[in-house]
Each structure stands twice: as C-alpha cells, then as structure tokens.
Design a protein around this nucleic acid. Sequence first.
DNA 1: TGGAACCTGTGATGAAATTCACAATCGCTT
DNA 2: AAGCGATTGTGAATTTCATCACAGGTTCCA
Lengths: 216, 216
Amino acid sequence: MNSNSSSSPKVPIPTLERLATYLRFLIDLEAAQVETISSTDVEKQTGINAAQFRKDLSYFGEFGKPGVGYNVLELQARIARILKIDQLQPIMVIGAGNLGSALIGYPGLTEHKFHIAAAFDRDPAKIGRPQGDLVILNEADVREVNAEIGARIAIICVPAAAAQEVADTAILAGVRVILNFAPIILKVPERIVVRNVSFLQELAVLSYHLSGESQK
Amino acid sequence: MNSNSSSSPKVPIPTLERLATYLRFLIDLEAAQVETISSTDVEKQTGINAAQFRKDLSYFGEFGKPGVGYNVLELQARIARILKIDQLQPIMVIGAGNLGSALIGYPGLTEHKFHIAAAFDRDPAKIGRPQGDLVILNEADVREVNAEIGARIAIICVPAAAAQEVADTAILAGVRVILNFAPIILKVPERIVVRNVSFLQELAVLSYHLSGESQK
DNA sequence: TGGAACCTGTGATGAAATTCACAATCGCTT
DNA sequence: AAGCGATTGTGAATTTCATCACAGGTTCCA
Ligand SMILES: NC(=O)c1ccc[n+]([C@@H]2O[C@H](COP(=O)([O-])OP(=O)(O)OC[C@H]3O[C@@H](n4cnc5c(N)ncnc54)[C@H](O)[C@@H]3O)[C@@H](O)[C@H]2O)c1
Ligand SMILES: NC(=O)c1ccc[n+]([C@@H]2O[C@H](COP(=O)([O-])OP(=O)(O)OC[C@H]3O[C@@H](n4cnc5c(N)ncnc54)[C@H](O)[C@@H]3O)[C@@H](O)[C@H]2O)c1
C-alpha cells in the first residue's frame, strides 16, 4: 500500500526520518560554531548509532573525509538538498483551529525552509481573520488559490469528520503529499503520500510503558 | 539509546503503536453500532494487514472467536486495559504556549481516558490564567503539585532551550515517561521512556517524496 | 449429523532495518 | 616519506518486523 513511487535505490523510510534529525542537529552545531563532526560524535550527542549515521548518508553519496569527519555546513546543505528544503517549500494548512493556529505561528518551520503559503478554514467567523502573517482563506477557494501558490504539501488540521473531504479537495488542487493530524485513515490514490501524526498513539505507547508496579 | 527497559515478552513497538489505532477504530465502530468485526474487515477499513492485526493481539492473549471475529466492546476494553487507559490516566503539560494550549483544549484526549491534570508555565503573564478547565500553574511548583496529582506522564511543550531542564524537573517530580515536542534529544536516565514528536521530521519525509519532476 | 463458509492464532518464511567489522583513506608527526 | 591514530563507506551478519499459510475452531443450514 505504500509510496515508493520513483527513486531507484530505495531509501528506507527510517533513514529519511533520521535525516531530518541530523539536519536539526547540524543547525544547532552551526550555531555553536562547530565546523567538523565525526560519526562517533554524532552517536555521543544524539544516541544514534555511528554506523547507522554513516549508512544513512551512504544512500546519497559520500559526504565525509576519512580520518576527519564531516564538514558541518556542507553536510547541512546537502541534507537540505536531499530533503528538498534547500529553498522555500510552500505548504497549505487546512483547518485554522487550535492546532492549525499553533502551526501557522511556528517559527521552526521557517528555519527549515518550510513556508506556510496559505491557511484555509470553513468557519465564516475565521475566514478573513489575520493570523500571523496570513489571512485565513475560505476553504472553498483551495483550488483557485493553489493555482497561484503551487503548494504540493498540505497539512490537515480539521476534525476527523471533515478530513477525507478536505484531503480530496487538496489533491484536486495539486497537492502531492499530506500531513494528517485528524485521527482517521485517509483513502488516497496510490501516488499520494500521507503521513499521520497521532498524539494519542504516542501517548498510548508511553502509557503502556508505565510498567507493572504502578506505585513506587 | 532506547527504551525497552523492562517488560519480558517483548512486544514490538510498532505493535503498540497500532494498538492505539485499533482502539480509535473500535471507538468509531462502537459509535456506528457495529458489534462484531473480523480481521479481514479491519484490513479493508484501515489498510492494516489482517494477519498483522491478529498477531498484534496475540502478544496479549486470545481475543476473538474463530468463524465469528472480535466483539467490538470487549476488544476495546481489553486494548484499553493493555495500554493502561482503562481508567483516567493523569498527565502534566509543561509549557502552555501555542502547542500546549492546543493540547489542553483537545477533547480527543479525554475520549481516550487521558486527563490533563495540570499545566505549568514559567511566564508570569500566563501563570494563574484559566485555560479550558485548568488554571496555568507555576513551573516552579511542578514537584509539589505532582505529589498530589501523581502524573507519571509529562508532555513537554516548551522551547528547545528549556526542554532538558523541565524534563529533569518532571522526572524528579515522579514522571516516568515523556512526550517531547521540543526539537532536541533529551538526556534521561535509562528507566525513563521518551518519545519525540517532530512535525519537521514528518514534513521532511514528505518533502523528500516530492519526486524529481518538480513542476507539472 | 455432516459439510460448507468463515475465522482465529501461530509457526514458518520472507523482507527490512540495524549493527558489526574491516579495508581503504586522510592528516599529522617524526 | 613512512608510520600511526582517527575515521569513513560498505558488504556481511544479525536482529527486528511483516506476511504467508494452514491447522484447528465456530456457526449455520440442510
Ligand atoms: N488540538 C490538539 O491538540 C490535537 C491533537 C491531536 C490531534 N488533533 C486533531 O487535529 C484536528 C484539529 O484539531 P483542533 O484542536 O485544531 O480542532 P479545532 O476544532 O480547534 O479546529 C478545527 C478547525 O477546522 C475547521 N474546519 C472544519 N471543517 C472544515 C472544512 N471542511 N474545511 C476547512 N476547515 C474546516 C473548523 O472551522 C476549525 O477552525 C482534529 O482532527 C483533531 O482530532 C488535535
Ligand atoms: N507550535 C507548533 O506548531 C510546534 C510544532 C512543532 C514543535 N513545536 C515545539 O513545541 C515547543 C513549544 O512550541 P510553542 O509553539 O507552543 O511555543 P510557545 O513559545 O508558544 O510556548 C512555549 C511556552 O513555554 C513556556 N516556557 C518557557 N520556558 C519554560 C520553562 N522553563 N518552564 C515552563 N514553561 C516555560 C513559555 O512561557 C511559553 O508559554 C517548542 O519546543 C517548539 O519547537 C511547536
């Protein structure tokens, strides 16, 4: 049921997930004026196995120098390139409620070259309201607006009952990948990639780990 | 770097994650007044492989009846029990900014028997302010307050720079597992389980999938 | 009562991801 | 210019996870 549409050498999804972690880490290293880092340093500071780090990178070429390590700035740039966030990546947010608003105001996105180009809602009370740098637009105009901004990423922050519908709309408007916060499994065409974020799922796993001896 | 501190029969983490999905699904089925469901139905409606579903459950005993399937209510109850959310599970939220506020107001938590018992912040402008059913408390009082409420789960919604510090505080206050939203890798004792939620990571994976031929 | 349709639980098998382990390379020191 | 410690990149080994496939239950109906 999955998504490896194009690329040839089949990069593991967990590798991609870690890539984002590395990028974050490298940005912090840059801020700390570290110029070079070795895979063992990475392991010490992030807990990610050194060989794992090297292998992850090896899917995309050679990045380091034996005996020395990796140049922080260069590696940062190359990872950004791989993830296609070396230049601003436009995103649309659908649903400007509690969660959508938090995202719209989140500066971390910009730091990683994600740019919320438009936010939509269906509630007349919200449409037209300024929110951060944006004005909330009418969800009915998704298609028309996206013809201009060309977002291929949509973030869905509407209630579960509306999620499938707005996903369909977004796809019609040219969106190719979706980050879904609604607790529902979206049905989408093969070519569309969806990732779900579920706080409940995370909490459930944690709760499970509250092992046997409840009070101590 | 990881978390499988205790349990004996070694349940795969992905299984635990799916358990929460099943629970959500079963709640929706209950609302739709479905009484019984088979693993093949689950596959049809969620996309999760039927054998996977059965195997996931098999780690915890036998739940179904051959030829019939699973009783929705019973399975729901048993999964909730496994995940320790069969009765209200108290949680503390630290950081009542954009994200923390969204969580505090999120009704989905209650539906899954998670209960935000207290929310803390350090900003004097926020302390004392009502928020949903709660009043924001002073972060300096985490320990004292938790002696009363006994939360073992903490959700960290403070800026990265403060995250390690509040994690330490939470652990001192008796917290055993942490859901961390700050983009930083927390250093915690072995026995503490941490899960990180990173929107940036999710977006990065999606962005990667915007394959080759950029404009169409 | 017997047989067909339908399901579960699980050992066996296969696929994917992680980790190991080592030859090859680099820069420094003498 | 040769030797050494550090570090990379990557096949091979290992571990973890997903799927297959089937022996047994269960129900229904004739
Ligand atoms: N708030 C949280 O902490 C949280 C946590 C996890 C998951 N979620 C999920 O995220 C989603 C949004 O949560 P929230 O708390 O922001 O809810 P919310 O009710 O605050 O916001 C939902 C917004 O979507 C808008 N909306 C409804 N139908 C729409 C449509 N068809 N088109 C466009 N906009 C539409 C509403 O007007 C509202 O502004 C929900 O599915 C929720 O389950 C929220
Ligand atoms: N907003 C988002 O959409 C989003 C998305 C992903 C990740 N995050 C991460 O979540 C965290 C919170 O994000 P946010 O948008 O809510 O930020 P925010 O600035 O709106 O809120 C942070 C809150 O933490 C409080 N705080 C700071 N130091 C504290 C301390 N020591 N103890 C207690 N409270 C303290 C601040 O007073 C503030 O109220 C950040 O780490 C951010 O990177 C946010």
